[in-house]
Each structure stands twice: as C-alpha cells, then as structure tokens.
C-alpha cells in the first residue's frame, strides 16, 4: 500500500492521535476506546508511510 497523505496532512493526523493519549491514560486498558484509538492510529501510520514500513512494524510491536 503506498502512502496516501502529504507530510503536512500526516503530521496533523498524528498530532490529533497524540492529543488523545492523556484521555486514554485515564481509562482501563480493556476500554473499547483504547482499541479504537490504536486501530485508527495504525491506519494513520499506514496512510502516512505506506505498508509495509518499519514504522508500522515498530508501532505494532510496541
């Protein structure tokens, strides 16, 4: 899958995901919001860098 976002679009979307981390830290790890955030973050990384990509592997194994 090739990247589909410009650098500036990718930066904006990643920042948006980062802004939600403080809220997630208040939740339990089983909260569906956490899974939702994680899935969306992976999608953003794929759109930013393409798939396969080292960044995606590093993120997924974190």
């Amino acid at each position: 899958i090739p990247p589909s976002l410009s650098s500036s679009q990718a930066i904006e979307l990643i920042k948006k995901q980062m802004e939600q981390i403080d809220k997630l830290l208040q939740l339990h790890c089983d909260d569906p919001e956490v899974r939702k955030w994680d899935n969306l973050t992976e999608q953003v990384i794929i759109r930013a860098f393409g798939k396969p990509h080292d960044n995606l592997d590093v993120y997924s194994s974190a």
Binding site: S7, I21, L24, C29, V34, V58, A62
Partner: peptide
Amino acid sequence: QNSFIKTLHNKRSLLEGFIEQLKI
C-alpha cells in the same frame, strides 16, 4: 494497567519520532 500506561507513553514517543521524520 501499569504496562498499559508504559505502552501508551512508548507509543507517544514513537508518534513524536514519526512526526520528526515527516518534517524532514
């Protein structure tokens, strides 16, 4: 729960690194 918090902090650092890459 403790490892969950660590994981989120780790993911935040990774995302910061990705933004730095995109700025280059």
